[in-house]
Write a protein that binds this DNA or RNA. Structure first.
Lengths: 335, 335
DNA sequence: ATTGATATCTTAAACGTTTACGAAATAATA
DNA sequence: TATTATTTCGTAAACGTTTAAGATATCAAT
């Protein structure tokens, strides 16, 4: 490996001069800078991140914590899209992305310890168990942390506007004439709580009564459990005219049940999804859903984190609300 | 940060002793080892990866090259699953995973340069343009490299058995009585070429003639283009009785077209997918497809790469064929 | 008692950078 | 001309490890 020393010898200058020349410091003459840069080019010089990291204490590397404990994680199109865009934006700003894990070499360590070991400049957390003590340890550290769809005190959070989205969706369904609205939600998370609260609140504002048995629990990204919940709704003595399903993928489970019962969507019963993944726009009938802006969410996560990293003194942690967008498909009938 | 030096002072030994104790070297006494370990624990010692990397030249870090140039990439369930399982297996073996990009800090660099800069111990490549000069540069380097679904000389490749899979699928369809088999393939890649060749070969062996207009080109993971291709097939004077579609997701496009034409699957026409993603098992009718074992592929990629990294002298690059599995659904009718 | 082997620890250099500080040369100012 | 400022470069230490080589002490064997 060719190092600064090799360049220094070739140019008859000191190593310090070479270092400063490569970093474009102001105290090196213009012509020597030229000379050094040319020599570096010729020799095929590449800086050594380890040495640099050892001195400067920063790594140009951000850690991401994604887990797949639930059936979400990387397999979920929403999160993989967030990750993809986080990655591309980070790359533009000159940062690498590596997954935070729990052991390196043969040494077990906590998430935070991993971050310190690798000298990550910052961390983004998404799709994890936010009540895991190890996650807690991480977010209570002094590292710049941005979380997605969950807020922690003193850290910035990028939040898909679930409250606004559900409100918009409910109002849209109301406008189509529906008054008997059911809601199947996913497992209990802060996101679920927001959606559910927004559902109740909007219904109340619109003067819709929501029978207790119109609200059921299923699992995100799980066709089977929403199929079961949907069946329960259909067998009700007074079934709803429209069902809001946990997400676009699990919606398929619900739609299957409906069609197996000989009912037609949306003529006999309406449904709506959530997420706005590619799938939703390809299904027939096209799914009415809310598109979560995973592209912007990924970008903003990277942007905020790197702003924080690079201006730790002036950066103010905040909550960034990313609006969703109603995709009116064909699954909600106008009564 | 607490370093070896701090421990050394506390224990009245030299830094070297501490280092060797922590690395469980044989030339340190049992009781001093104990003492040092305890002190390390008490002080909350964490090794510094940068310093370690600087000396040892290895990083316990592997680079992965995934791109999203096509509409595949991370958004594709197959690849995200491969990545997920690559990640989990690498973690078990004590390696971190970071994405290979093209610029760090404000410095543009090639993939290979990135790898050298970060001292990656090895690289896995998947879902990229394998003819990109920068990719070529990477695979012709001396780094341990394992590629997925593409083979390079001297490197190990983890290959989903596309040839065997297509053969199995075609034979299955043949057994169901079909003789007029159409094939819509994705964009031209080595995977596509294998599938296509296997399709032709198997058909020939079975004595099936394949009219030229039964083989059409579309795009992977793109419902619209396969919809178009499917339409072309349906409008043929002598249409096929079964259509093999590029993959499970794009299959939806084809199935939509068929149903829009008033035809029923599989009563009027049969279809088959490829990939075996979750979606395929949730569609109604359930899709007949080939499941690519993305879990094993991810695991094997990690296993081979790390074996290579840890035994560079004895490791022999090879090609690992991972069999697929026929998932017989309901979309291929028994004639 | 001398030698050699073994076990345990230390010394010191090295990895490739960055950076505070100082030195020398040159230019500007009084 | 003498002084001060400016520009440009070098010295040397530091970051936290690892490791070859050496040192010391212990112990067994001759």
């Amino acid at each position: 490996m060719v190092s600064l020393k090799d360049i220094a010898e070739k140019c008859n200058v000191s190593v310090a001069t070479v270092s400063k020349a490569m970093n474009d410091q102001s105290d090196i003459g213009k012509d020597t800078k030229e000379k050094i840069r040319r020599a570096a080019e010729e020799l095929g010089y590449l800086p050594n991140s380890a040495a640099r990291m050892l001195k400067t204490k920063h790594s140009n590397n951000i850690g991401v914590l994604f887990t797949d404990k639930t059936n979400s994680g990387l397999a979920h199109e929403y999160f993989s899209s967030v990750l993809e865009n986080l990655k591309s934006q980070a790359e533009l700003r000159g940062y690498d992305i590596t997954f935070i894990s729990q052991n390196i070499g043969n040494q077990k360590m906590s998430y935070l310890e991993h971050c310190k070991y690798r000298n990550y400049d910052g961390v983004v957390i998404a799709s994890v168990d936010y009540y895991d003590p190890m996650v807690l340890e991480l977010v209570t550290s002094t590292l710049p942390v941005v979380t997605i769809d969950h807020v922690f005190n003193g850290k910035t959070a990028i939040l898909s506007d679930n409250v606004g989205a559900v409100e918009e969706l409910v109002k849209y369904i109301y406008q189509q004439g529906h008054r008997k609205l059911a809601f199947i939600h996913g497992e209990d998370t802060s996101v679920t709580q927001k959606r559910l609260a927004s559902f109740y609140k909007t219904c109340m504002e619109l003067g819709i009564e929501v029978p207790e048995n119109y609200v059921l629990s299923a699992l995100y990204h799980d066709a089977k459990s929403t199929a079961m919940a949907t069946r329960r709704l259909l067998e009700l003595p007074d079934p709803p005219t429209c069902i809001m399903l946990p997400d676009d993928f699990s919606a398929i489970g619900g739609m299957n049940v409906i069609e197996e019962k000989g009912l037609r969507i949306p003529e006999d019963i309406s449904v709506a999804g959530f997420d706005g993944i590619l799938l939703s726009q390809v299904l027939r009938p096209k799914l009415t859903t809310i598109k979560q802006d995973s592209v912007l969410i990924g970008h903003e996560a990277a942007r905020h984190l790197i702003d924080w990293i690079e201006n730790p003194k002036t950066y103010l942690a905040s909550q960034v609300l990313i609006p969703g967008k109603l995709l009116a498909g064909q699954t909600v009938k106008c009564l």
